[in-house]
């Protein structure tokens, strides 16, 4: 099959398709996570004593640090999108790299926290609370790793000076969703008593 070459006029429609597709994806992901949160709350309502007791064994420091790291990374990706829109691609590229670095710091912090909890004897099988703790934080980390792929594509497009690309826009939308989901997870697991 022959590979076609796009005329400039056809590109905006395709890119717009991708952004709207990304938004549809974000909505479905948020709906799926909402279902996880509802199930968590139902289990919590069913056994509030176990959940309240187990919750005290989590480290609020880790939770807070993780939240601050992700909020900072979201701020960086927003700045990167603004810089790219202004045509300052070098600055946008550096800010996107910083976003990824903060994302890596989040993953390292999360792995350390898991190690800390497991060393103290709290695992997936300890009780329902820790099952949800490891599941929700685990599936969230998978989303962060997926975010690195989105950011990787965005960095490549920035490096190539692809002015038509909306890869950074999509990566930014996705990264904000990951951040938003973490804030909800942090609230449910660490804060709500």
């Amino acid at each position: 099959m022959t590979t076609i070459t796009f005329s400039p006029a056809s590109e905006p429609a395709e890119l717009s398709d991708k952004v709207s597709g990304a938004w549809a994806f974000i909505l479905i992901e948020c709906a799926t996570f909402s279902a996880y949160f509802i199930v968590y709350m139902l289990y919590r309502m069913h056994d509030p004593a176990t959940f309240a007791e187990a919750q005290t064994h989590l480290s609020p420091t880790f939770g807070l640090v993780n939240t601050l790291i992700l909020l900072a990374s979201s701020w960086q990706v927003a700045r990167s999108v603004h810089s790219a829109r202004a045509g300052r691609y070098d600055v946008a590229w550096r800010q996107a790299v910083l976003t990824v670095a903060l994302g890596l710091a989040f993953v390292v912090s999360k792995l350390s926290e898991w190690g800390f909890e497991i060393q103290r004897g709290y695992t997936f099988e300890t009780n329902d609370f820790f099952a949800f703790y490891f599941f929700l934080t685990g599936i969230h980390v998978v989303h962060v790793l997926l975010g690195f792929v989105f950011m990787g594509v965005a960095l490549y497009k920035l490096h190539e000076r692809d002015v038509h690309s909306e890869a950074l826009e999509i990566a930014g939308i996705y990264w904000h969703m990951v951040d938003f989901l973490w804030v909800v997870i942090f609230t449910l697991l660490y804060v709500v008593r």
Binding site: M1, I4, E14, A24, F25
Partner: peptide
């Protein structure tokens, strides 16, 4: 894909 055989939203749905 540049031939737009399948819509982009479905590509993202694969992630879900």
């Amino acid at each position: 894909d540049k031939n737009r055989v399948l819509p982009a939203w479905f590509g993202f749905l694969n992630i879900c």
